[in-house]
Simulated scan of single mutants.
Amino acid sequence: MNNVDLNLLIALDALLAEGSVTGAARRLGLSSSAMSRTLTRLRSATGDPLLVRAGRGLVPTPRAAELRDRVHDLSRDVRAVLRPQTNHVDVASLERTFTVRVSEAFLEFLSARVVAAITLAAPRIRLRFAARPDKDARPLREGLIDLEIGVLGTSAPEIRTRLLFHDRLVGVARAGHPLLAGTGVTPERYAACNHVVASREGNVISPVDDALEKLGLKRTILVVVPGYPDAMRIARQSDLVAAVPRSCLGNSLGSDHGATLGLESFECPVPTPGFMISAMWHPRMDADPAHRWLRDTVMSVCRTAYPR
């Protein structure tokens, strides 16, 4: 577009609005001679005189009169497009659909709080929660989802991330389970129990098993389920023991919440590595004020529920 100069559009808008070279120059902060040269360029570009002398002033030609409103609208749109985006967004009147990809555990234990916070401030926003079957960055890259919550695992270097909270595995068993009686949960007593394991891929080997193996111990896994909420339901209704993220216990991060579920929690008797739960999004959404408000709200909810 070497032959297109958008500055000419802005100048034409000023000339048609002012009906004067001097007035247009003053509006745009140019000298009268510079504006006069710009008018010459405009006449050459459009093939029309645009403004012609009538006594001591200038009047628009029919072509210029025809273009006046259109040029003004185009000039306004060009300025809007090339102006830095405002950080302000009126969330109360915002109408938009956001797709958030989360794990089953997040959907069960945190989605209600996120929905409450968002609908309270932005009642016209629609949230669409999508399952997170893997850690592939393609949906973020292709704009299929707006925000992702979970453990980092993508190899896409451009993805933006923000830490929400630290998490770790804890044990859960039904209230009154024999494992919870006595002097404490030892590795030997823990390994002697029957276990239910959460694994989307069906892989039963976890950091818990690696830690037990170092002690010469091995647990018996009777049930494998897709997600942690499933493991907690089975543990609550049987003598099986489960290892779940501490965040699954709710806001209290302790046994009180577990007791309301018919479960009691305990510290894993073997060391397991902690992990981080993060928010992830594509750089294309980084400067979008509505998206920024969405992720800030999600982050606030998560950090309130699970303080660092």
Rank of each mutant, 00 (worst) to 15 (best):
A175E: 15
R200Y: 10
G202F: 05
G202E: 01
A175G: 14
E148S: 07
I149N: 02
V185R: 06
L152A: 11
G143H: 08
V170P: 07
R168N: 05
V197T: 11
H166E: 14
I159L: 11
T154P: 00
E201N: 12
G202A: 11
A173E: 07
I149F: 05
A191E: 02
T154K: 03
I159E: 00
A198H: 03
N194Q: 15
E142Q: 12
R189H: 06
A175S: 15
N203G: 02
I145C: 05
E188A: 13
T154Y: 02
G202T: 04
A192R: 12
G202C: 10
R174F: 12
R168K: 12
V170W: 02
L144M: 10
I145L: 04
N203K: 13
L180P: 06
I159V: 11
T186K: 01
R162N: 06
P178T: 14
T186D: 04
A175F: 09
G182Q: 07
R162H: 13
A156G: 01
R189T: 07
A192N: 02
L180T: 12
T161N: 07
L179Y: 11
E148Q: 08
L144W: 09
V204L: 07
R141K: 08
E188P: 02
R200T: 13
V185L: 08
R162F: 01
L164S: 04
H195Y: 10
P207E: 09
P207C: 14
T186W: 04
R162Q: 15
R200G: 12
R141F: 04
N203T: 03
V170A: 10
L163C: 03
D146S: 11
V185P: 03
G182E: 07
P157Y: 03
V185M: 08
G150H: 06
R160D: 01
E201C: 00
E148N: 03
A173T: 13
T161I: 08
H195P: 06
P207W: 14
H177P: 10
D167E: 04
N203C: 05
V151C: 02
A191M: 09
A181Q: 15
P187R: 13
H166Q: 11
E158W: 04
E188G: 06
G150I: 00
L152Y: 01
A198C: 13
G202M: 08
N194Y: 09
A173Q: 07
R174Y: 11
A173I: 13
A191T: 08
V170K: 06
T183R: 14
